[in-house]
């Protein structure tokens, strides 16, 4: 996994909201803006953005995916860091895209976008050098390290921030390394395996009786939350950045 990003220059950033936040989870994108602004960042939202290209990339239609990635490169032009509240979309840009552009003439441009794309927690901790979080957030949290952040600094970064919050208790749970079973189209093309995986994850996580199931990827949470509701044992889901924002609010640090 490629994580050789340059230290973030300045505090101007571009937000890539992701299509899931665009369609379902607007509050996550809002929280991202609020958290970044609290840290003094100037956040711009390029209106032309659509999707990171991952669905086609994962489905094996790299040609279609490249078309969308090229659109991303245009949309997120400039030199500012691109910050994404999703480990999986960020990884698409800094790892997946370079892979599918290996033999394309514009691979350098893709490489440049890759080297300034950050997952939000990673950006806060390793880009801005912040390693503890103010405010207060009372609750027991089961943290699911989303799979696309494996071998990147995002997982440890999220954990570090969460654990530093006054009132937060991050509870360990069994077989934590296992995937939740979402995997985008995987959850649809492999329905039996996907739900069996989700079930396993929920069993382990809910056994610890958390107040919140937290992750850095809304895909995982949408899948797990949706399953839990369907199974009649709903669980509160939160993106890491929502916890960060709520902590600031509870601490009276933002309105």
């Amino acid at each position: 996994m490629r994580t050789d990003r340059h230290p973030a220059p300045g505090k101007k950033i571009q937000l890539m909201a992701t299509c899931l936040c665009d369609g379902f989870f607007d509050d996550v994108a809002i929280a991202t803006v609020q958290v970044l602004e609290h840290l003094g960042c100037e956040v711009s939202f390029p209106e032309g953005q659509t999707c990171c290209g991952q669905p086609a990339f994962n489905a094996g239609d790299w040609k279609s995916s490249r078309k969308v990635v090229r659109h991303c490169v245009q949309t997120f032009s400039g030199a500012e860091p691109v910050v994404v509240p999703s480990g999986s979309c960020a990884a698409m840009l800094f790892h997946g895209a370079p892979l599918e552009f290996e033999e394309e003439s514009d691979s350098d441009e893709i490489g440049r976008l890759a080297s300034r794309t950050w997952e939000i927690s990673d950006y806060i901790v390793n880009g801005l050098g912040i390693d503890s979080w103010p405010g207060r957030f009372p609750g027991r949290i089961a943290f699911h390290r989303s799979c696309h952040t494996r071998e990147t600094d995002s997982g440890p970064a999220s954990r570090k921030l969460l654990e530093s919050i006054d009132g937060v208790e991050v509870t360990p749970f069994g077989e934590a390394e296992q995937c939740c079973g979402f995997g985008g189209t995987f959850s649809v093309t492999f329905p039996s395996i996907s739900s069996a995986m989700g079930h396993l994850k929920l069993e382990h996580a809910l056994k610890e009786k958390p107040d919140y199931l937290v992750s850095g990827d809304m895909g995982c949470l949408m899948h797990l939350g949706g399953m839990a509701t369907r199974e009649g044992r709903p669980v509160e889901i939160r993106h890491v950045v929502q916890v960060l924002r709520d902590s600031l609010r509870n601490g009276g640090l933002i309105s």
């Binding site: 909201a17 665009d22 369609g23 379902f24 209106e47 989700g198 939350g225 399953m227 369907r230």
Partner: peptide, 13 residues
Amino acid sequence: SRELPPWRGGAFR
């Protein structure tokens, strides 16, 4: 096997 969350397309923008 899952519920979909409510659709909120465009709300963030």
